[in-house]
Write a protein that binds this DNA or RNA. Sequence first.
DNA 1: CCCTTGGTTGACGTTTACGTAAAGGTAAGG
DNA 2: CCTTACCTTTACGTAAACGTCAACCAAGGG
Lengths: 151, 151
Amino acid sequence: MQATIGTGATGWEADDRNRSIGELAEEFGLTHRTIRHYEDEGLLSPTRDGQTRVYSHRDRARLVLICRGKRLGFSLAEIKEFLNLYDTGDAQIEQMRYAQSLARQRIEALERQLQDVQQTLKELRHFDIQISEHLRRNGTTETQPMEEKLS
Amino acid sequence: MQATIGTGATGWEADDRNRSIGELAEEFGLTHRTIRHYEDEGLLSPTRDGQTRVYSHRDRARLVLICRGKRLGFSLAEIKEFLNLYDTGDAQIEQMRYAQSLARQRIEALERQLQDVQQTLKELRHFDIQISEHLRRNGTTETQPMEEKLS
DNA sequence: CCCTTGGTTGACGTTTACGTAAAGGTAAGG
DNA sequence: CCTTACCTTTACGTAAACGTCAACCAAGGG
């Protein structure tokens, strides 16, 4: 079966060549240290050219998921588990069942998170509008240098 | 003006009484330590009865937002800034402008997060379906104790 | 040959978000 | 009076996720 992952339908996923740690760091706005840390934690496993790390397209795809996971507030351990879901590859039936159950747990967690985000967005937009209205009622449409207050 | 916050339209926001730290901890599934920590960090400021903390309805509402912020992966510092948005109360025009700009930054961040969540959900659901189909093709609809494999 | 650029491995430091004792105050109940 | 339950402060401990040296190798340019 081989479930494919990430970077689909983004349009420009060409440029399939291998990267050095520096290039990857540059591209993702991370430090070398951070990327090596992800390797220490088992989230990445680049090949080596001598002792130099070589990051394949697959490593890069994983890094995309790692960064997204981070933005969503997941711990590296959780992200690792998440990544392991995908590279299960062709596996035993039981392993696939297990992976599926993990995936479903993740889905449920993300659905809750979706609710949280939407709720917070709703409140913040309401807040924004309240302020805008307040400011409009009190004049001062744009930041003005001097304005007499009706005291 | 006074922007109201949280627990609106939840239906049952009655039970307006004050709570002890123990009750709050119980209700939110937190430890005493955690709640006091939030106070140390300036996220809560309960009144005191003697030296015992007394949590008002407002404190409880803030705690709702704190927990949600945590689920969304925000740091306590960020959540504090967020809370300060709301209790600006009646403020100077300039302060309100500032609060509004902060709110809008938050909104943008949350919109990005929303994209992340939706993208991840999409991928996970796709993954889930792929596994389901794979399992269906290979029989074993339910976890079976014994089944001969067509080798 | 030396220097710069870019890679490497330790290994200790730091921040965040609490956990976990230690030691004690207070009010209710037996 | 003693215990129990619930609260308090002070303070050190810890796990996660890196930051920050230090010391090193290697390839290429001047």
